[in-house]
Amino acid sequence: MSSRLLRRLPQTLPLSTPLRRAPLAFPLSRQHSTGSGTSVDPTEISHFDGLASTWWDPHGSSRLLHLMNPLRLHFIQTCLLRGTPVPPTPSARGTESVGADPIAAVQGHRESEEGGLRYLDIGCGGGILAEALARLKSTRSVVGVDASSGVLEVAEAHRRMDPGLVKGGRLRYENCVVEELGGRLKGEERGGFDVVTMMEVIEHVPHPHAFLYTAMSHVRPGGWLCLSTISRSWISYLTTVFVAEDVLGIVPRGTHDWNKYLNAEELEGFFHAQKNWGSGGGMVTMGCMYLPGLGWKEVKGGEKVGNYFFGVRRDLE
């Protein structure tokens, strides 16, 4: 029932940004609803599984997530332009182009390259971001993690449809809560990832601080933690909670807990207080908005009212 309503959402609502984003955030939130793997609500996962079948339908409920993907890559690129985990060396692949365009590269045959970047995508869902990252030539490998086995089945089935993703272990999924991820990491992954991403996740987490600490533990020195979320403003309250849940009822009540929304200043404040994080320009905030007919666009100051990206770099040791 609720999944059907969610699927209809993008077609029926006025295109206010937070509303458009509400259904996107909902599925991704499930695996993080608690701080431990034992308290994930099975009914929430089954609800989430209902959405899974349309994950890769270009006109399905995840269309807006697909459309947002280029902006996500743009943001990650913006962060990497401020500093890469490893200073460029002559042996690193594409050293010359790293400054100009660190992650945009060529699709096609490629081998896992020594100089490539390792990504961890927390709350990877059907793999929209994880697949895109894995196709970039500058990528060495991507690990996607999600607590829902149903959605990971979809992600895995879709991964097998692209020989470029199957080859050389470029992309792998782990079905667990992020707190349990450590035991599943292999080799160099244990030393941390170059980029850890968490898209549309943190606003659904009951204990964001504890959750952030867990995610931070997977970032290697010089690497980035990149996330996207929504600010706690009266506009986001009106659109995502009051209109969508209370008035129209098209999003099940309780989907969003407005009080859990994090403002950019709060994230900035949190990381300013952390030792060895975000020094020397290693903190980036970018507001964005879905504009009908134009798609997702960067909007200066957008973080004050609605969706935004936040990136923070772990200092080099």
Binding site: P58, H66, N69, P70, L73, A104, A105, V106, Q107, G108, E131, A132, L133, A134, R135, L136, D162
Partner: peptide
């Protein structure tokens, strides 16, 4: 070109739209 740069599958309807 845009699809390749964004890591999309160049054959998908979404890329070709």
């Amino acid at each position: 070109e845009t699809a390749v740069q964004n890591g999309q599958d160049i054959g998908s309807v979404l890329s070709l739209e």
